[in-house]
C-alpha cells in the first residue's frame, strides 16, 4: 500500500473540518474524493501533504508514519501537490517555476529530459518558457502547477480542485493528462474534486465526503450509478 490514512481528525479552532476519515491508495491507483464545498476535501489533501497535520489519527506513506513529518520532507520522499488555484511563483519564469520543483534532486534526475517531456505534455509551457508566472492565463498557470509537481517524478500526486476556474475544454484536457499519467506512466494520483463526473470517470475508486465524514466509498463506476451520488453530485 502506498498511502494509508487512518481515522484522521482535523479542526480549525472550534470548527471540526474532518472527523474520523480513513482511506488508502495502492500504488498505481487513481482515487477521487468528491464532495460539496466545505465538505473537507482540501483539508484532507493538506493533511496528507503536511500543510495542516491532523490533530488525531495517522498517515502512512510506503509504510512509514509521516503524520508529523514537515511538508518539505514529504515532498522529498515523493509526495507532490497541485494546489487549488495553482499557486505558481508569480515573479519567476515558467522555467524557473519548474526548477523549484527539482530542488535538492538536481543530481538524481535527468532534468533536461523531464523538462522536454513536460513541454511535450503541455506544449503551451514551451511557448511561455521565459515568461513570468503572473503573466500566464489561469489555464496556463494550472498546467504549470501540474508540470512543476510532476518534474520531480513523484510517487504520489495530490491534485486539489484542478478544474476550478478552467474553461470546459481545458478541464477535459487536464483530466485527459491526469488519466494518461495514471494509465500510461503508473502514477498514483489522489484527486479531490467538485466536478464529480469528470473525476470519477477517470478514477478506479472514489470516496464521497459530507461535512467532514466519509459517507460512501467504492468502485468509481458503482459510485456513478449510486442514486445518492447521481442526485447530489451528478445532477441526475
Amino acid at each position: 500500500m502506498l498511502l494509508e490514512v487512518k481515522d484522521i481528525h482535523i479542526s480549525y479552532g472550534d470548527i471540526q473540518a474532518i472527523c474520523g476519515v480513513s482511506f488508502c491508495l495502492e500504488r498505481g491507483e487513481l482515487v477521487s474524493i468528491i464532495g460539496a464545498n466545505g465538505a473537507g476535501k482540501t483539508s484532507i489533501l493538506n493533511s496528507v501533504m503536511g500543510i495542516f497535520p491532523p490533530q488525531k489519527g495517522a498517515i502512512y506513506f510506503k509504510g512509514q508514519d509521516i503524520t508529523t513529518m514537515p511538508v518539505h520532507q514529504r515532498a522529498r520522499i515523493g509526495i507532490r501537490i497541485v494546489p487549488e488555484r495553482s499557486r505558481v511563483f508569480p515573479r519567476l519564469t515558467v522555467y524557473e517555476n519548474l526548477m523549484t520543483g527539482v530542488y535538492g534532486l538536481k543530481n538524481k534526475l535527468p532534468i533536461d529530459e523531464r523538462v522536454s517531456w513536460l513541454y511535450e505534455v503541455f506544449p503551451i509551457l514551451k511557448e511561455r518558457h521565459n515568461q513570468i508566472g503572473s503573466t500566464l492565463s489561469g489555464g496556463e498557470q494550472q498546467q504549470l502547477s501540474i508540470a512543476r509537481a510532476l518534474i520531480s517524478d513523484p510517487e504520489l500526486l495530490l491534485v486539489d480542485e484542478v478544474s476550478m476556474g478552467l474553461m470546459p475544454k481545458l478541464v477535459e484536457q487536464v483530466f485527459g493528462v491526469l488519466e494518461q499519467l495514471n494509465r500510461g506512466h503508473g502514477l498514483t494520483i489522489l484527486l479531490v474534486e467538485q466536478n464529480a463526473f469528470a473525476s470519477l470517470n477517470i478514477s478506479a475508486r472514489g470516496y464521497v465526503l459530507e461535512t467532514g465524514t466519509c459517507v460512501l466509498h467504492g468502485d468509481a463506476k458503482e459510485l456513478m450509478d449510486n442514486p445518492r451520488v447521481k442526485e447530489v453530485y451528478l445532477g441526475h
Binding site: V71, H72, A75, V88, P90, G101
Partner: peptide, 12 residues
Amino acid sequence: EEETAASTMGIS
C-alpha cells in the same frame, strides 16, 4: 513569493 508552495516543492 509563496512559502507554503515552496515547502511543497521540497524547499525547507
